[in-house]
Design a protein around this nucleic acid. Structure first.
Lengths: 125, 125, 125, 125
DNA sequence: GTGGTCTAGACCACA
DNA sequence: GTGGTCTAGACCACA
């Protein structure tokens, strides 16, 4: 279900974090659902357990999942978390738009790019 | 005119590259205008000359500036470069939009953020 | 396997880049094969790690190799890269031929020199 | 008659040397013909007199021209010089062919490139 | 004075 | 252990 790009410049642990967040966003991972144990997921993905552990730890720090010693890791049921993630992403986009404006990209060009992803990609409005 | 954030996770030489590109985009640096010499800018910014040199060298490789030994560094007058920079930025935004969609951000939220920057910021349409 | 000429006017990092490209062309380095780590190669060649790093970084920018932090540097398996390298070399040769023509070297002299390398050197036609 | 590219990576003094050699090869400068004085040529070309002087000095060292104090600089009438220049260029080409072969360029590709310059460019065979 | 290369070393993030 | 960035300096070619 999760495919990582070992040749990517994006660190493995960040890729893994993104994938899990995406799976939650897509509804593939439900609230309070249990995640695979660190060692199992590490074996399945062919990466070092430390790398998976790091992703889980950071996701917990962000409130996306919670870990219970001896029981496992679970998707958080905290609604505020999702909102916080979205806010963070929007803040990031804001910075990008600012830079785009400074190098002469106009609003319509950005809208066009946006629609290439959202309309043609079939993402809900 | 240029302020770098030494605490940022973004490398100094990349910050510097972005700033120079922005200054060009904003019209603060004109075509064929001479840039500060490597050593001068390094001293002014409080960084090592090698770091400035790296930024300049990469900008030259991208066609943004050109360097002449014994004479100095100058803003490129190549029109194709500007277009390439904009294309690159739009490609980057496309990836960001994709991720945004995956974590549940809807189109209207992005438009809203965009307008906060472009309309309220007074950037030309 | 790699010998650098520290007395040459050609910068060390460029010599190193050429050598690696040649080793790939000669089949001594296979696709996805791991290159020596920066520090190891630097020590073996008796040069500074920064110099090797520069060669590797530029080769990566050209698509000849790819680097993964924490894992190592590897020969690229991108086919387009080989074609690009050959195109670049042919363009360089074109410039050389132009200069040769201007100082009075005739076509047959160049062919003769070419055959000294290709026929007597046993390079495939 | 001589146009230099101030933005080129090739040093001005080397460009100037090449141009003079080319003019000789093309017959535009005859044996024993007087060259413009250093300061005159420097002014005409918009470069520093030191730069022209350096070109003249190196050309004299190569036997291409000779300088007589108080009288001026003249094209050499030494036949051996022309031959030496051609030999040097051919030796350089030999090295290039070797590298070309190592990265997989075949003989016919080089011939094709050669003919693009010599046949289509109308250079004498 | 200008850019170009290089050494010797340090500290960091990542796997 | 691996690559990535950076400092502090040096020496060079060129204009």
């Amino acid at each position: 279900m999760i495919i990582l790009d070992s040749k990517s410049k994006e660190p493995i642990y960040l890729q893994l974090k993104s994938k899990i967040i995406q799976l939650i966003g897509a509804g593939a991972l439900q609230k309070n659902e249990q995640l695979p144990p660190v060692r199992v997921l590490a074996r399945d993905l062919g990466v070092n357990p430390n790398t998976v552990q790091r992703a889980y730890t950071e996701l917990e720090a962000q409130g996306v999942i919670y870990q219970i010693v001896g029981k496992g890791s679970f998707i958080s049921d905290d609604i505020a978390t999702t909102a916080a993630l979205k806010q963070g992403k929007l803040r990031e986009l804001k910075g990008e738009f600012h830079k785009a404006g400074q190098i002469g990209i106009v609003r319509s060009e950005i809208i066009e790019t946006l629609d290439q992803v959202y309309k043609e990609g079939g993402i809900r409005d």
